[in-house]
């Protein structure tokens, strides 16, 4: 099939299958999946600027479906999502400016690559440690408690909880309550800072940076994992729409490719969302560990070969 906007010939079945895979990941983990979509489009000869912009457009569609499904399961905190969207958009702009400054200094690729490796690897190692520690302490509980476990999959436990509680006790006005997430009071600035950092990485490293935002929501804000996944997707709808508009105006979006990819993502996202019902929070976090490591592999490949995937 010929896509005139990006001047590319791509098999629509290939696009639908890629969309399907990203849909599963998005529905289950609350990530955009740009680390797969970008290289997959590049592999078919789509120019890098179109790959980035088109991927964002596709993420909007996929996240709408997954967020709607998560909302029916009670996994979306709308108030938190709206607040975070502001921080993310601000952070994304700051990240883009940082890239421009590094471009002027002439060492953008090296700095971004090393920051990405350290951050991705750090997230993977930390989540592996925390989820395993939580799961181990969970197993030590009485058999009676284990029997009731199935009904309480959304009741989240984390080995990092004491630190999260300390962060929640920081009293910088204005304080907000998030009853849906079970957070009695938290500073608005803490939420905005978490969103800003997520947005900063999104603008700096590309993609939606869900692999940073979802863990931050769990460990820093104390949002239960299922709600973090659903709320992150809702927030991605807003921030990715902004990104899509911005890229489309600059001529970086082939909406026809995004529409075809999205047909596969719809089914994948629904499977991913349903699958979250069968896993407890620490298990979802443990399964999340390979995602940032895939990011590390892509960056290392780019550094070693000099080719962008």
């Amino acid at each position: 099939m010929f896509f005139p906007i990006s001047n590319a010939h791509i098999n629509p079945i290939y696009l639908a299958v890629v969309g399907f895979l990203i849909g599963i990941l998005g529905g289950f983990f609350g990530v955009g999946g740009s680390f797969i979509a970008g290289p997959a489009l590049r592999l078919m000869g789509v120019d890098w600027n179109y790959a980035v912009g088109t991927d964002l457009a596709h993420i909007v569609g996929k996240s709408i479906v997954a967020a709607r499904q998560h909302r029916t399961l009670g996994n979306v905190d709308l108030r938190l999502g709206f607040i975070m969207a502001f921080g993310t958009i601000g952070g994304a702009e700051a990240g883009a400016q940082l890239i421009q400054a590094l471009k002027r200094a002439g060492n953008v690729n090296t700095v971004v690559s090393f920051v990405a490796i350290v951050v991705y690897f750090g997230i993977a190692v930390f989540m592996l440690w925390e989820s395993q520690k939580t799961l181990r302490s969970h197993k030590k509980r009485s058999p009676k408690q284990s029997a009731a476990r199935g009904a309480q999959l959304k009741v989240d436990h984390s080995a990092f909880h004491p630190v999260t509680q300390m962060i929640q006790r920081i009293k910088i006005w204005p304080m907000v309550d998030l009853p849906v997430s079970g957070i009695r009071q938290i500073s608005l600035w803490t939420i905005l800072l978490v969103a800003f950092v997520g947005g900063l990485f999104s603008g700096f490293l590309g993609g939606g940076a869900g692999y940073i935002r979802m863990p931050s929501m769990v460990y820093v804000l104390g949002v239960p994992t299922h709600l973090a996944v659903g709320t992150d997707l809702f927030e991605i709808v807003i921030s990715a729409s902004y990104g899509t508009f911005s890229h489309a105006v600059k001529g970086n979006v082939d909406i026809l490719i995004a529409l075809v990819m999205h047909t596969g993502a719809v089914i994948g996202a629904q499977i991913g969302v349903v699958a979250t019902q069968y896993f407890a929070g620490p298990k979802i976090r443990l399964a999340f560990v390979p995602l940032p490591l895939i990011g590390v592999a892509i960056v290392v490949y780019t550094l070693v070969t000099g080719h962008k995937l």
Partner: peptide
């Protein structure tokens, strides 16, 4: 007309998401 294209692109992807979600 890039700005109109950007608006149409967003409407199309959002519309398709809602429609396909309803169908499935």
């Amino acid at each position: 007309r890039r700005i109109l294209y950007a608006v149409v692109a967003l409407l199309l992807i959002a519309g398709q998401a809602v429609a396909l979600d309803a169908v499935t």
